[in-house]
Every structure is written in structure tokens, then in C-alpha cells.
Amino acid sequence: MAEVETAPGTLRPGGRTARVRAAVLRAAEDALIECGVDGIDLAEIARRAEVGKTTVYRRWGNAGALVADLLEDMAEQSVARTETGSLDGDLRANARLVVRTLTDERQGALFKAMIAAAANDERTAEALHRFYATRIQEWAPCVTQAVERGEIPDGTDAPEVIRAVSAPLYYRFLASGDPLDETVADRAAHAATCAARAGAYAKPREARP
């Protein structure tokens, strides 16, 4: 069997290696929150994590690889979707989770720093895209289940519905600065539900599998 080359920082064995990775990723989070992407200096991260600089440079190599690994870890640790038995309830749970994350003092600052880093680093941008693709994939089945229950039309594009829920929330978070709360979350979820019921996200018949 041919060997597969593993990118720096992506190995996940247990024991000391896992503990070192956890410490370094936590230190990277702290640095991002405190200083933004400019705070991701590998030597400083090693100092914060109380591990050897050589270890950090060998496993991650550069700041982009470290931030990418942090995003992968965040995707793995993300909260699983909620199943309420209705599309509106499921999307409301999704929207409220997004709002709780973005308004959390630590997580909100971390996401802003990640998005800023992605704007200037291709590897970080790719990792951020994978993170959100993972989250959309996690929540898309609630739309598929709604189709099966007859709540919304056949051929509804499940990922597009999930994107429609979070898009106005991220707009407030990153662009307008308008308040983010459960009322806003519920409104975004309800709007996406109504649009889905009206067929706004149904794929053209020729585009369906």
C-alpha cells in the first residue's frame, strides 16, 4: 500500500502528541483573540503552550498551517444538529446556535480573527471553507427530512436553505453591526422556512440527480 503524505499538524495520535497539539491550539486561539492573525508567531505560540519551538515548527511549519489545523479541530468539536421534528424548529435551533457562537466573547473574537486571516492566506481560506462545508453538511439532513415529511417541495436544495439561515446573521456580525439575539435568529430561520415552503430553493427538475 502506498504511503500517504500527511500535512504538518494534522496527525492525531493519542498520548503526548495529542496533549501537545491541544496545548498549541489553545495557545493559538488565545493569540488570535488577543492580537489577531498578527499574533500567530510560532515561537510565541510555543512559549504560551510551554512546548519546544522545534516541536511547533516541525509539526506546523508556518502560521497558516497552524490556523488551518485550529479550524479543523473546531469543526470536529462543533455541536451536533438538533432534531425537533419540524423544519422551522430545526432551523431555529441552527440559527440560535450560530448567534450564541458569534456573540460569545471568546468565540466571536476568534471567528473574526479567523475570517481576517483567511482574507490574506490561501491555506487558511481553504480551511475556513472546509469548516463551513462541514457545518452545512451536518445540518442539511434537517432539510432532507422536511422534504420526506412533505413540509417543503421535492428537489429543495438543502445546503442552500442552511446557508440562507446563517447569511443574515453573519452580515450583522461582520458588516452592519446590528444586534444579534434570539429574536433575530428566529426571524432568519422563519424566513428561510417560508422561502423553502414556497419553493424558492427547489432545484430545476433537469438539475436534480
Rank of each mutant, 00 (worst) to 15 (best):
L66P: 01
A68M: 00
A68N: 01
D69G: 15
L70S: 05
L70Q: 00
L71R: 04
E72K: 03
E72V: 01
D73M: 10
M74L: 15
M74T: 08
A75G: 14
S78P: 00
S78A: 14
V79P: 04
T82R: 11
E83V: 15
T84Y: 13
S86T: 15
L87Q: 01
D88I: 10
D88E: 15
G89N: 14
D90P: 08
D90Y: 02
L91R: 09
L91D: 10
R92V: 14
A95F: 09
L97F: 07
L97E: 13
V99E: 04
V99H: 05
R100P: 03
R100N: 09
L102H: 06
L102P: 06
T103D: 02
D104T: 09
R106K: 14
G108P: 04
G108L: 04
F111G: 00
F111W: 14
K112H: 13
K112F: 01
K112G: 13
M114K: 10
I115A: 06
I115Y: 03
A117W: 14
A117F: 13
A118S: 15
N120F: 05
D121P: 05
D121I: 01
R123K: 13
R123F: 08
E126N: 08
A127G: 09
L128G: 00
L128K: 00
R130S: 12
F131G: 00
A133C: 00
A133P: 03
A133V: 00
A133D: 14
T134N: 12
T134A: 14
T134W: 02
R135Q: 15
I136L: 11
E138A: 13
E138N: 12
W139A: 12
W139R: 11
W139M: 01
A140F: 07
A146D: 10
V147K: 05
E148K: 14
E148Q: 15
R149L: 06
G150F: 07
G150V: 13
I152R: 05
P153V: 10
P153M: 08
D154G: 11
D157A: 12
D157N: 14
D157S: 10
A158K: 00
E160N: 14
V161C: 08
V161G: 01
A164C: 08
Y170C: 00
Y170P: 00
Y170D: 02
Y171G: 09
F173A: 02
F173E: 01
L174S: 04
L174A: 09
A175L: 13
A175W: 06
S176C: 02
S176Q: 08
G177S: 11
D178P: 00
P179N: 03
P179K: 06
L180C: 12
E182I: 01
V184Y: 09
V184R: 04
V184Q: 11
A185T: 05
R187I: 00
R187C: 03
R187N: 07
A188H: 07
A188T: 08
A189R: 06
A189E: 05
A189I: 03
H190V: 02
H190L: 14
A191N: 13
A192S: 13
T193N: 05
A195D: 13
A195E: 09
A195Q: 14
G199L: 06
G199T: 08
G199D: 06
A200K: 03
A200F: 10
